[in-house]
Amino acid sequence: MNSHNHKNTRKVTIVPCSGIGKTYGTVSRLAAYEVVEDLRPDSAQLVPLSLLVLGDEDTRATLQGSQTVTIDGCKLACARKMVAECGGVVAQDFAVLDVYRRYKQFKPDGIAELNEGGQKLARALAEEVAQVVDRLNEDKGGQCG
């Protein structure tokens, strides 16, 4: 059940914020799932922010050995700050609000369950993240998995 300790440092690591009280946090989480499960399952992996808070050694080692993309739901940028704090390299940070400004037709609502706009926004965000994952993999010679 526990997959915490089996990370691949050749994959790009995706760290979404753990935002629990706002819609944008849910969008960040859903977008991360879409990247690692649907769009780039062979070249991207998820790291839970809660393990970074705890200073989990394996998780820190994963971060230090791989390129990381963070997705933050609000300006406090917990994901970006935590990755930096743990010695990771933030190749790119996405802020959901900035992404929403590019896709204003997708107005998100809901926290436990996103509305259709939120789901579409998450998909749009995930596609942008996937492009960054591709670029990062190209930069290091296309080796992944």
């Binding site: 753990s18 009280g21 809660s50 970074l52 808070v53 917990c78 994901a79 700050k81």
Partner: peptide, 24 residues
């Protein structure tokens, strides 16, 4: 957590994101 915050005990509870202890 959300069910408690939104439905079961909305006036008695408040939440914070765990990483905010460090990032905040």
């Amino acid at each position: 957590g959300l069910k408690v915050l939104e439905q079961l005990r909305p006036h008695e509870t408040v939440t914070i994101c765990l990483p905010l202890f460090l990032a905040g």
